[in-house]
Design a protein around this nucleic acid. Sequence first.
DNA 1: CATTAGCACTCGGATTGAGTGAGTGCTAAT
DNA 2: ATTAGCACTCACTCAATCCGAGTGCTAATG
Lengths: 346, 346
Amino acid sequence: MSGTELNDRAQLLLKNLVERYIRDGQPVGSRTLSRDEQVALSPATVRNVMADLEDLGLIHAPHTSAGRVPTSKGYRLFIDNLLTIKPLNRGTVSTIEKQIGSSVDSNQLLVSASRQLSDITSMAGVVMLPKHEVAALRQVEFLPLSSRRVLVILVINEREVQNRIIHTSRDYSPAELQQIANYLTQLCAGQDLRQARERLLREMDEARATMNQLMADAIEMAAQAFATESSENDYLIEGQTNLMSYADMGDMERLRKLFEAFNQKRDILHLLDQSLHSNGVQIFIGEESGYEVLGDCSVVSAPYKVDDKVIGVLGVIGPTRMAYEKVIPIVDMTARLLGNSLNQLK
Amino acid sequence: MSGTELNDRAQLLLKNLVERYIRDGQPVGSRTLSRDEQVALSPATVRNVMADLEDLGLIHAPHTSAGRVPTSKGYRLFIDNLLTIKPLNRGTVSTIEKQIGSSVDSNQLLVSASRQLSDITSMAGVVMLPKHEVAALRQVEFLPLSSRRVLVILVINEREVQNRIIHTSRDYSPAELQQIANYLTQLCAGQDLRQARERLLREMDEARATMNQLMADAIEMAAQAFATESSENDYLIEGQTNLMSYADMGDMERLRKLFEAFNQKRDILHLLDQSLHSNGVQIFIGEESGYEVLGDCSVVSAPYKVDDKVIGVLGVIGPTRMAYEKVIPIVDMTARLLGNSLNQLK
DNA sequence: CATTAGCACTCGGATTGAGTGAGTGCTAAT
DNA sequence: ATTAGCACTCACTCAATCCGAGTGCTAATG
């Protein structure tokens, strides 16, 4: 057992052990394993193998006379090599399809996707908001509010609307604002928000002398309005409360930290970002994720695509001890269905 | 002790008992109370009085030989008659002022208000979204999306912007849409959304024969677009996780139900609605609220006003055993400050 | 007559110790 | 290589016990 390869017997035992542990939540001992039909071995032999597995860091005994429990490394090996994925139940697919299909706008779509994930798996479902790599500006509207405050409406990508309020250095009449908006719309339509902003700033520097005051004002305002606030960098989460039912989530304090991480969003977002360039379902087990708060959680994630281009990630978060063989296909399928639906909406 | 009035001594003892219990979280016994300087009585006497208080249902012993704990009724009497409210700490006021004052749009304002409430009290802070009793339509814009889907932008009340997507029976050209939007803007500007909708529908019935097709289409669309989705019926909540630190919140299951109620929003909203017509701080203690999930929670709420008109409610939710004398002025002050700030933004 | 001292009693919580059972590692036999 | 046997470990459960805080009642007291 030189560390690199596990013989068949060891693999079989590990597989059985992990499956049992996931099912019952109890450390599993040699007797239990040896009673299994597929394992035609005496407890003693099983013990020997288990000792080896423990040396390899795949399983571990919570205390001297308890059974063994998989470590993260054990889960990893199990998932990568031993897991037999359950084909998706017919009904489940159509449930997801129906729910997701009935959404009319893209936001509703994302909400129902995360809700589906959470409902079906009884864990927490997350859906990252889609990244529009092309943020093509379509139209700019200005509306005067009270003194020196102007509402800016940006229509982006045929679909998305952003509202911002900017402060101006003097009051403008509705007519002036209209004029400025038209000027900007015409100037920037079809361009990326970031690029448009940079180009405008350059232009202002170069042509400062020649342009009229209103144009200068317009560009000034645009610079403010286009400040790319990243509403993109965000996600939806549903069913957090499901996690409160799992005993293995440890004490209240851990759970609290976890929930705070959900609110903070930063860490979770970084984690999801890592799946952005993966090709299919990806799994982070416990501390593997690199985030303390996710200590005894696993994250099963998958990128979703529109036009064969990955634009976001979705997944579920739950206890390490979860039914991977069911969760993986669910996440996979949901990602596909979400992609399809987004495509149709486009 | 005929039930209606408590003599001074009994009141003093109740006051002390509640204060002590709130401070220490332990049932308080006769010895402890008699040791208090203000109470110059022997434990035995205290016991007699406590027996009376228990008969009145104001306090209650968790078990034979524990001290006494206030009941909801006891808390109620304490709060209504015995509580000496702490004047607000100077620093606290300016903290709230600073935080709230630095918000530029109304939504940010509400967020920072609820965050302040939660931060300062270490409980959960809620802020109901303001009810705009006058939802005066200001401008309507239509933008064509892909086939038969149209983005509607409604600007309401100088400040608020709503985006909706409607489905049309055929494709319209941008020019047509522009025309329709202009027509509607001109027709409905300044009117309440609901009224406008009704009037339009009536008009359509009456003048169906005489109007041209485009007008008819316009009204048809407006009917769809104005469908008053009540984004009003909602609230923000911050610092839910704070509640997880309180031991008295009972077991995980209760807490889970509570969190689900926060997500559901319905019950909490009903409760807050009740404060909408109260004049100042209102307090719901435990089961008083009528909602099972709030079993061992209290809600301290206050309406906030713009132009002397109540438009919303804010408050905190925490364990029944909270420092009311501090929380009450905080909620009160935050409501005032939020009102002021909203006024300035207007 | 209100207050208090004294006393017997109750009950929850912490501590202890024995018993149980699932599990282990090691060794010797197969 | 596998297995049977054995001594050992250790968490968990349960009952017994003790302790202390608190109570209600009664009789004494100013």
